[in-house]
């Protein structure tokens, strides 16, 4: 039996322009993920939604979420 873990994180009340900037800054690095780990980024209404999914080992999931959120915070701070 393999364990699947899904994590959804939403950044609410963000302008479309800012959400688009953050999304286009992060998406090019969304490549070469470890096997079983994936990330989808959606820009819905006034929210930026990150959908993480990990199958099997959870070892890489938490550091990946940690890095993505750190990058989001950095990107938002830079355009402020």
């Amino acid at each position: 039996m393999s364990l699947t873990c899904r994590v959804q994180i939403a950044i609410n009340n963000i302008s479309e322009k800012k959400a688009k900037a953050v999304q286009s800054a992060l998406e090019p690095d969304n490549v070469d993920f470890p096997e079983g780990l994936s990330l989808e980024i959606e820009n819905i209404d006034n929210a930026l939604v990150f959908n993480f999914q990990s199958t099997g080992s959870m070892k890489k999931l938490i550091p990946t979420i940690d890095e993505v959120l750190a990058h989001v915070q950095m990107a938002l701070k830079v355009i402020e």
């Binding site: 800012k18 900037a21 690095d29």
Partner: peptide, 15 residues
């Protein structure tokens, strides 16, 4: 590397 990449893309996209 990803730090500079994210900052550059953010500024490029936003401005």
């Amino acid at each position: 590397l990803r730090v500079a990449g994210v900052i550059a893309r953010t500024v490029s996209s936003y401005y």
